[in-house]
Design a protein around this nucleic acid. Sequence first.
DNA 1: AGGATTATTTATCGATCGATACAGAAAGGA
DNA 2: TCCTTTCTGTATCGATCGATAAATAATCCT
Lengths: 203, 203
Amino acid sequence: MAERGRPRAFDRNQALHQAMMLFWEKGFQGASMSELTAAMGINAPSLYAAFGSKDALYRQAMALYEEGDGVVLGREIAEAPTAKAAVEAYLMRSAALFTRPGKPAGCMVVLSVVHGAGTSPQTSEALRDARNEAQAVIEARLRRALEAGELPATCDPAMIASFYVTVQQGMSIRARDGATRPELEAIAQASMAAWDGLTQMQG
Amino acid sequence: MAERGRPRAFDRNQALHQAMMLFWEKGFQGASMSELTAAMGINAPSLYAAFGSKDALYRQAMALYEEGDGVVLGREIAEAPTAKAAVEAYLMRSAALFTRPGKPAGCMVVLSVVHGAGTSPQTSEALRDARNEAQAVIEARLRRALEAGELPATCDPAMIASFYVTVQQGMSIRARDGATRPELEAIAQASMAAWDGLTQMQG
DNA sequence: AGGATTATTTATCGATCGATACAGAAAGGA
DNA sequence: TCCTTTCTGTATCGATCGATAAATAATCCT
C-alpha cells in the first residue's frame, strides 16, 4: 500500500508553515498567489494539487497556527493554579507570543477579523469559531473557579472573560503597531488591576 | 475670479463621504476602484481629477473621519470634569460610535493597522500619527490631572493611557466581530474597575 | 519492460486591478 | 461668437489577480 505515482518534491508541512507565516503577516487578501508560491518554493499547480485553493490553504494555515500558539495559550489557562493566575498567564504569554522576533506581530486569528475580508463564508465562520472558542475557554475556567468557591457567586464569568479577551485583542493591534513586549506586559498587568473589582461585581 | 471651465456635476463632499464609508467598511485594499466609483456615483476620470489617486482619496477620507468621530471623542475628553470621567466618557462614547446602525463597526483609523496594507508610506505614516495622537490626548489629560493634584504623583500617565487606548482598540475588533453596544459598554465599565489601582501604581 | 498514477514545469487563461487617452460637453472671458 | 478651461463619458491601457491545460518526469504495480 505504498504511495502511487511520482512522489512530492517538497515538504508539505514546511510549505504550509511558510504559507502560514505569509498569511499571518499580510492577511488573506494581502498575500497573493505569486507571493505564496515564492515563499513556499513551489509552482502554482503544485500548490493547488496539494492544498486545493488559496482559500483552503488559508484554512489549513489557520489550523496549523492554532495547533501552535493556540495550544500554548490553552495550556497556560489549563495549568494555572487559580483563575486569576490563568488570566494573567494568558495575557503575559500573549505579550510574549505577539512580539517574537522573526514572527509576525499579533494574533493571526484575531487580526483576520479585519484582514479576513475576501475569504469564503466557510473560512470566515471557521475564524469566528476560533475567536469565540478563545473566550469560551477563559469563561469556562472562570466558571470552574466560581463553582469551586474560589470566586464569589455574584461575579459574571462571561463579562470578565469578554473584558480580558478584549484586552488581548487590543494587544494584537498594539503589537502590529510596533508595541514591544515590555509595553504589552505593562498593559496586561494594568488590566489585572481590575481583577479584584470585577470578581466582586454583580452579574 | 469665478471658477473657470465646466462646473463639477457632483457634490465633492458627498462623494468623499461615500468613499469614507466604503474605506471604513472594507479597508484600503478591500475597496476597489470600481466599488468606489459606484458608491460615489461618478466615473473614474472624475475621481482622479477631483482627488488625485486612490491613495490620496483614502487620506482625504481619513481626514473627514477624524473631523467627525475623532473630534467627538476629543471633545468628550476635553470637557469631562475629571481625568477618570474623561477616560470613562472616551470609552463609553466609543462603544456608541462603534455600533451605530448604518455605519461600519469600529474605528476606521485603528482597523487600518491591519486593513492598511497596500497604502503608500505617506498614508501609513498619517494613520500611525493619528493613532498616536489619540493616546497623546489621553496622556495629556492625565498629566494635567496629575499636575493639578487630582492624581497621586506616583502614577504613570503614559502607561495608563496606553492601557485604556488598548482597551478601546480591542473594542474596535470586538465591534467588527459583532459585539453590541451594551456588550462594549460592559467592557468599558470593566476596564474602569482598574482605575483606582492604576492611579495608585508607581511609574 | 510496460502501463497506471501522480507531481512537476511551462505557458497561459479570463477577470479584475488601478489608472488614462481621447473626444465631446459646459462653463467663463474676450 | 470664438477661445480657453475644466469636467464628463467611453473605451481601454499594461499589470496582476486566482486558477488551469498540456506536456513531461518520476514513481509503483504487474
